[in-house]
Amino acid sequence: MGVFSVVIGALNQGFLQTLKLFSVTLLGSIPLGLLICFGSMNRWMPFHRLSAADAPRGIVGRLCRILSRLRPVSLLTRFFVWIIRGTPLMLQLIIIYYGPGVVMGHSPWPGGETGRFLAAAIMFVINYACYFSEIYRGGIQGVPVGQQEAGLVLGMTKRQIFFKVTLLQMVKRILPPMSNEVITLVKDTSLARIITFQEVIWAGQAFMKGSHGYSGLLWPLFFTGVYYLVFSGVITLLLGKLEKKLDYFR
């Protein structure tokens, strides 16, 4: 077998792992993002009664007023989103994969590629869900209030209004920013290389040190770029089609 077909074989194998991480991340983060979005938009105020006019004056009164406006679910969710969006995904991968071992003395992850995939997938899902949640929030808030009010006066439940009225209008609105994130995800999967998840970059890089009987080869690493290009091209076409499909309404 020639060197080219050996390299392509190895890169294909690596790219299969890339694809796996990519699809699991999308499947997990799209619904989880909605959950996080609902969390950050949650208006539950358990202490709202404290704002009553008979609240005491002075420090205690001021504390009461602050507490009365507290939305714990929203606050906690937004704090979590801040942590995830405020730190590098690469660092998060290192922490989730090596952190438990450092703290507990032994790693909870299964050995080998399975454990690395699991750790990477969980971290990617959480990370992307946080970004998606903010896009969703913008999408939901962009749907005019009148839509919700129209549903309400027609006796629809909040759930029916969300699923039958708001959701599709939101999807239409968020498609362009979501496309951006999805394209970014195609390339971000390479960050899992940091915990030696054997995706396509790892497979290409291996030919420098020595892999399948070849070493000192630089071009396989360069060649991985073609995989990303082709794949993001396909994704762009698919998302464009979806956008067209929602062109039937405004």
Partner: peptide, 14 residues
Amino acid sequence: HFGLVFQSFNLFPQ
């Protein structure tokens, strides 16, 4: 018991 017609129609676009 009440129906409401809005100033801005608020039809569901989809």
